[in-house]
Design a protein around this nucleic acid. Structure first.
Length: 854
RNA sequence: GCGAAAGUGGCGGAAUUGGCAGACGCGCCAGACUUAGGAUCUGGUACCGCAAGGUGUGGGGGUUCGAGUCCCCCCUUUCGCACCA
């Protein structure tokens, strides 16, 4: 140990030692396991502060569990397929593979300089064939089970350049390069049937609701969009023969007597047939086309535009009331949801209300508000009773049915159940659940991804690549024109192949997979990263998974985190894992922001805003330990973290002061006397020991709950108390030395999750040269007896205001506490001459004396 | 527009879940040591007031012996959704 704290020296020294000893390698042993996982990074080339925060949080937990004796798995890898590599190829002519590999080398170095305790022997990278082979394997398994399929779907198409555009490239409905209006074009694309699992994705949330942030589950549940209601068939009234029906979906069957129209989406498949005999055929078709065109243009525009519609002249019959209703086409009915047709109930739906007002459709109230109490009576006043034309708003709450034939007088919930059953009985409807989630489109017309393992043969049609021919390896390079068509299509050696079925000439699929496929199951590969015969061994999964703690940004709240749940359920169904949910606890950490120069705005660090902070520079200037500790101390993990240069200096200052204190004591502490008798401890020493054990108790619980900022604060408090104790190593009694050793050792061990390098250094110099902190369970145990306060300062209030304090022992009886409060001099002055109405005594907490004011 | 969450010193944030508001750190002020200090150390630091004392957790009301914490209304900010029938 040097006299002065030189972070750089200490950090390289311990990084080397850890590496040589292989202490972070997870072993397959019998201990209780802890799987600590951080979202794997995209190898963009540079670590940013968001990464540092993510990994510092995970590492604190990993260290904590390791020091507690758990068998900890803490791995890292690279989400290395994806656009930026291909962009670099297009712009600068670099090979995506080289670009990616170089970035990995650089970022790995950065992570190592940060000293994150990863098991590097398990490192994986999505772009390597030994990894994406298993993407392809899973794809084929899904294909076998009918969960992967091909269907025509719309893509953005620039008619001038003849290319496919991504949503981003066609923002605003025009081509990003030539400003030509974008068309929607139909293209065959691969999909994974996530909708098959929609119900489970919602239902299984119960299993994780205690470990996942509520807001993430909320977003996922919105994303799945489960909605209970009913399908209802409205018979089309036409000249005679046919028994055509229009099926609608509704969640409010109880409002059906208020339906005054049926409204179809412009893309409704039945529309052409319905219009066959209509006099308005041409007009309606023109209108429908116009709506379709408008929809094609608005890709990401807000959808609160004017509602427009047109009466088709067709009539339909309300199956409950027998009433005849006009059938309209309108722009506000979505083909993607439900059945693409709705019954329009203006009185009880905002959109229908707006539409009805514009086109003077009748508005008929059929639900009356329930008046629970007087205060809630208000809605009645705003809605007319029988003359519904007076309604100024739609009334969308549940209530009691009126004007609804035999159902009148029934509450909504009862009516919904009964009417649904009735519809089913009579054969014109049934209860139904719809979901908003749609199947996962995984086709990408890109080079830098896992090729979809499928072959097309003129004779045999679509043929899956046989399992023993996996992986389908990406060619070394391709022609990166940036046209939006799959670059693989331009590589004949790749495309041309033979049919596995008939040996005839055949072509390979040239689409690659969405990178979210790679990240859906990667953390299972860490368990068994070199396995050549399976994605992972089942027994490994049995031991290590589910993940105990997953940490990452909340930008992945829906996409990645819902795909990975889906993937797990699929793996369960094919017998690879035995549980429903892959992640027990999830933390979505807050963003790291910095002031944008010249403004008052705090925004996520980025190159383009020029407000980035380079982790390497911080490590150089302050050390990895201080950088990590600051990031953990500055804010609660889930909050936004505003960068502060002076804040990080505070962290170095703290580490340096601890270091200096250890330096002062280390020679005295390396030899141990026998433990002194309890009676030998001075008041100060007992207070120090109390603080030590209180701090141990606090950290043991705080770190587990990832309250890392308060953990660091508690360590600072313990340190402050050590300074206050102010013993001199040269003259201290052996009891004092004992107390200091206990406090200092606890402080050093508990500092490890936040500043592991300097902690190891100090641990060694305190006489533990035999073994690394990293190697054995050294987390201290709190002794509740020592942590207990010997005396309490009990606040005394008069009428709820703090007036005095009395000293009492923790065991004091309520009676005695009351008596000493009433006897207190300051209190006596205040209550003198007043009637004491009541005295509230909260044991160990406070006394409140209620008096009548004179 | 709809929905959710959150508002505590100059700043980041504590507060055992209804019981001493402001832990810890940053910043700031004063002092010490220094040729010097943007190093280090010591002390101070919610607001008003010389003080006694009073006020104080976005604003207003309420429940309670007692409210940052619970309830109602309002304001502001942030996030999510965007015609989901």
């Amino acid at each position: 140990m040097d006299e002065k704290y030189f972070p750089e020296q200490i950090e390289t020294k311990w990084q080397q030692r850890w590496n040589e000893a292989g202490v972070f390698q997870a072993k397959d042993d019998q201990r209780e396991k802890f799987y600590c996982l951080e979202m794997l990074p995209y190898p963009s080339g540079f670590l940013h502060m968001g990464h540092v925060r993510n990994y510092a949080i995970g590492d604190a937990l990993a260290w904590f569990k390791r020091l507690q004796g758990f068998n900890v798995l803490h791995p890292i890898g690279w989400d290395s397929f994806g656009q930026p590599a291909e962009q670099a190829a297009i712009k600068r002519g670099v090979n995506p593979r080289e670009w990616t590999e170089n970035n990995i080398v650089h970022m790995r170095g950065q992570l190592q300089r940060l000293g994150i305790s990863y098991d590097w022997t398990r490192e994986i990278a999505a772009h390597r064939p030994d990894y994406y082979k298993w993407d392809q394997w899973f794809f084929l398994k899904m294909l076998e089970r009918g969960l992967a399929y091909k269907k025509v779907s719309q893509v953005n198409w620039c008619p001038k350049e003849n290319t496919v555009l991504s949503n981003e490239q066609s923002s605003g409905g025009i081509c990003w390069r030539c400003s030509t209006p974008v068309e929607k074009r139909d293209l065959e694309q691969w999909f994974l049937r996530i909708t098959e699992y929609a119900e489970q994705l919602v239902a299984d949330m119960k299993q994780i609701e205690n470990g996942w942030p509520e807001k993430v589950l909320k977003r996922q549940s919105d994303w799945v969009g489960r909605s209970e209601g009913a399908f209802l068939d409205f018979a089309v009234k036409d000249s005679g023969d046919s028994d055509r029906k229009i099926r609608v979906f509704t969640t409010r069957i109880d409002t059906i007597y208020g339906a005054t129209a049926i409204v179809l989406s412009a893309e409704h498949p039945l529309l052409p047939e319905l219009l066959k005999d209509s006099a308005l055929k041409t007009d309606v078709e023109a209108f429908a086309q116009k709506v379709k065109n408008e929809k094609a243009i608005r890709t990401d525009l807000a959808a609160d535009e004017e509602k427009e519609g047109l009466n088709t002249g067709v009539l339909a019959i309300n199956p409950f009331s027998g009433e005849t209703l006009p059938v309209w086409v309108a722009n506000y009915v979505l083909i993607e949801y439900g059945t693409g047709a709705v019954m329009s109930v203006p009185a009880h739906d905002e959109r229908d209300f707006e539409f009805a007002q514009k086109y003077s459709l009748p508005i008929r109230q059929v639900i009356a508000p329930v008046t629970h109490d007087q205060v809630r009576a208000e809605p009645v006043a705003t809605i007319a009773g029988d003359s519904s034309a007076e309604m100024k708003h739609s009334f969308t709450d549940y209530g009691v049915l009126i004007n609804s034939g035999e159902w009148g007088g029934k509450p909504s919930d009862v009516a919904i159940a009964e009417m649904t059953a009735y519809a089913r009985e009579k054969g014109f409807g049934e209860g139904a659940v719809t979901y908003r989630i749609r199947d996962w489109g995984v086709s990408r017309q890109r080079f830098w991804g896992a090729p979809v393992p499928v072959i097309y043969c003129d004779k045999c049609g679509m043929v899956p690549v046989p399992y023993d021919q996996l992986p389908v390896v990406l060619p070394q390079t391709a022609d990166f024109t940036g046209t939006g068509e799959s670059p693989l299509a331009g590589v004949p050696e790749f495309v041309n192949t033979t049919c596995p079925n008939c040996d005839g000439p055949a072509r390979r699929e040239t689409d690659t997979m969405d990178t979210f496929v790679d990240s859906s199951w990667y953390f299972f590969r860490y368990l068994d990263p070199r396995n050549e015969n399976a994605a992972f061994d089942k027994s490994m999964a049995q031991y290590w998974t589910p993940v105990d703690q997953y940490i990452g940004g909340d930008s992945h709240a829906v996409m990645h985190l819902i795909y990975t749940r889906f993937w797990n359920k699929f793996m369960r169904d094919i017998g690879m894992v035995s549980f429903d949910e892959p992640v027990k606890r999830l933390l979505t950490q807050g963003m790291v922001t910095n002031r944008v120069e010249g403004t008052d705005e705090w925004k996520a660090m980025s190159k383009s805003l020029g407000n980035g902070i380079d982790p390497d520079e911080m490590i150089k200037a302050f050390g990895a330990d201080a950088t990590r500790m600051f990031v953990l101390f500055a804010a609660p993990v889930e909050n936004e973290l505003r960068w502060s240069d002076t804040g990080i200096e505070g962290s170095v200052r703290f580490l340096r002061r601890v270091y200096t204190l250890v330096w002062r004591w280390h020679e005295r502490l390396t030899y141990r006397d026998a433990a002194p008798d309890a009676a030998e401890f001075s008041d100060g020493a007992r207070a120090l020991r109390r603080k030590t054990h209180q701090t141990i108790a606090k950290l043991t619980s705080d770190i587990d709950h990832l309250h890392l900022n308060t953990s660091v604060a508690a360590l600072m408090e313990l340190f402050n108390q050590l300074m206050e104790f102010n013993a001199d190593p040269a003259t201290a009694s052996s009891a004092d030395v004992f107390a200091v050793r206990e406090a200092l050792e606890a402080l050093v061990v508990m500092l490890t999750p936040f500043a592991p390098h300097v902690a190891e250094e100090m641990w060694e110099s305190l006489g533990h040269s035999g073994g690394l902190l990293a190697e054995s369970p050294r987390w201290p145990k709190a002794d509740p007896e020592l942590a207990r306060r010997e005396e309490l300062e009990i606040p005394v209030q008069v009428n709820g205001k703090l007036r005095s304090r009395v000293i009492a022992s923790p065991e004091v009886s309520e009676e005695d506490l009351k008596a000493s409060a009433l006897a207190d001099e300051k209190i006596r002055v205040l209550i003198d001459g007043h009637e004491v109405v009541k005295v509230i005594v909260v044991p160990r907490r406070l006394v409140n004396i209620v008096i009548k004011s004179a």
